[in-house]
Simulated assay, not measured.
Amino acid sequence: MELLVFAIVTGIVTYGLERNRARQADRPRPRLSGSLDVVDRNTERVAAELISR
């Protein structure tokens, strides 16, 4: 009984993953989501701490 439930769940998960992959494969995806002009505040903070020492 447990093996049958395991096989059914595995089949449903495999089907869902394959369906999702096939649906997303036909359109190009952007390389990055978001903008590229983000300021790294951590770098600025570390630089300010090093200057203040």
Rank of each mutant, 00 (worst) to 15 (best):
R41I: 03
L17Y: 06
I12M: 07
R23Q: 08
A22V: 04
G11V: 08
D40K: 03
G16R: 03
R23W: 12
I12C: 05
R53E: 10
T14K: 02
A47R: 15
P28L: 09
E18A: 11
G11I: 06
R27H: 15
G16A: 01
L32D: 13
A25N: 12
L3Y: 05
G11A: 15
R23G: 02
R19M: 09
G11K: 04
E49T: 05
R45M: 14
A48F: 03
G34P: 03
R53Y: 05
E44T: 09
L50S: 04
R45N: 07
R53D: 08
I51D: 06
M1G: 10
L4T: 07
T43W: 11
E49R: 13
M1V: 04
G11R: 04
Q24A: 06
I12N: 00
S35P: 01
V39F: 03
P30K: 10
R27E: 15
R45H: 13
R41M: 07
A22D: 11
E18G: 13
D37P: 00
L50N: 07
E2R: 11
T10Q: 01
G34M: 05
R19L: 11
Q24M: 07
D37Y: 00
V39Y: 02
V39G: 00
E44K: 11
Y15F: 14
R29H: 14
T10Y: 05
L50V: 13
I8E: 00
R53A: 09
V5N: 07
L36M: 12
S52E: 15
I51G: 00
R19Q: 10
E44S: 06
M1H: 09
E2S: 10
R31F: 14
E44F: 08
R27L: 14
S35C: 02
G16M: 04
L36P: 07
A48S: 10
L32N: 14
